[in-house]
Design a protein around this nucleic acid. Structure first.
Lengths: 207, 207
DNA sequence: ATTATCTATAGATCTATAGATAATGC
DNA sequence: ATTATCTATAGATCTATAGATAATGC
């Protein structure tokens, strides 16, 4: 069977993803990956040639995952009024970041430390994203013109929402990992932060 | 002379700091450091024993630098009213982050990828910080009680300000390094963001 | 025949130290 | 004498590949 044939090839990808997300590029070795899979280290190179290509493969998909989630968050939800849509964007993005707890730190680390890789990948994906952003931009401008919200650049609104979400989560997750607070306590704090972020963003908009 | 004697010892520290800030721990080698200094690689180990201890030495001071700047930002400025003080905190912190452009990414990367080191160092510095935070906390609560601002937890206010500053800067610096936009353009964008952050935070407070 | 998997290893890289030599201060 | 500096290298680690062997599909 084909699925049986590809078993190790796929499992290498899966375990590599786990390890890269956990430890990052440099702390992960191809031998570690092979050990998790239960195969020989040479096989990792047989299928993916170099550690770098393997990482690229995974990073590219992870970045896509993150960007597509952003897309889906700002997607038009016709049934909601503007204020409700803003709440919806913050909530869905916040929850996504929290429930993919390794994803954001992984991307941020890479983004801060490997500009080359990021440049290459971002240029590919930038174009398709314009549509959704334009639609969101249009909606915000409409609200501003109609005098229903304070004047604000759409891009500022997005940056504020996403960066408050991301940094709140990263702070919480760092505190947890460094100071060993109970997960329940953290969860409550995060829920509280989410509400605080909503309040902050809505206050910026409200006339 | 003593200064002549310590010359290489000090210069190793300086060059190591430059390289660690630029490239992070794993991409920097003791041979690279020695080369920058113009001495032998063994000397790096002679003075600092291990690469890890050398890094600790530098990281500890850099973290302290960052935390002390936060302290100085929230320090009481008696001559300002509350709203002006908030503006002052945002501005001074924002400007510090921008003019120490390698510092924040360096700390964030380490914070995300080496919890052990962070735990060790943070516990030391946590206590001394209480005073200033308490004073700020008290001031905010006073304002809330007096009905001059909306109800908000002081810690939320701080997190919002600092994380908007940090993430705006990191985004800008990543965009610059990945997409090669001219520095002047970036500078303008950052100034704009700073004003936007001030607007956002003040709107959250304003009744 | 072709593809998958393994064994074994070359070769690169890097940290850390041992031991020799030079410089310095008493 | 003591401290600073250098040369040389052991030893660890890791990636990547060559070449042998086993499994699979026609």
């Amino acid at each position: 069977m084909n699925t049986e044939q590809n078993k190790l090839e796929d499992r290498i990808l899966v375990e590599a993803e786990n390890l890269f997300l956990e430890q990052g590029f440099s702390k992960t070795t191809t031998a570690q990956i092979a050990k998790k899979v239960g195969c020989n280290q040479a096989l990792v190179h047989y299928y993916y040639r170099t550690k770098d290509k393997l990482f690229d493969n995974i990073f590219e998909r992870k970045l896509k995952e993150l960007l597509e989630n952003i897309d889906s968050c700002i997607q038009n939800t016709e049934n909601l009024n503007f204020e409700e849509q803003i709440k919806h964007i913050i909530t869905t993005h916040f929850d996504f970041v929290c429930s993919n707890s390794q994803l954001v730190p992984f991307i941020v680390t890479e983004l801060l430390n490997n500009h080359e890789r990021f440049r290459r990948l971002f240029e590919n994906s930038a174009k398709s994203r314009n549509d959704l952003f334009n639609s969101f931009e249009h909606k915000v401008e409409e609200q501003v013109k109609a005098g229903r919200i304070n004047s604000i650049k759409p891009i500022d609104l997005l940056i504020t929402m996403f960066s408050l979400n991301v940094s709140s989560f990263m702070l919480a997750s760092t505190v947890q990992k460094s100071l060993n607070v109970p997960p329940q306590f953290l969860k409550e704090k995060l829920e509280h932060r989410k509400e605080e972020i909503i309040k902050t963003v809505l206050a910026r908009l409200k006339k």
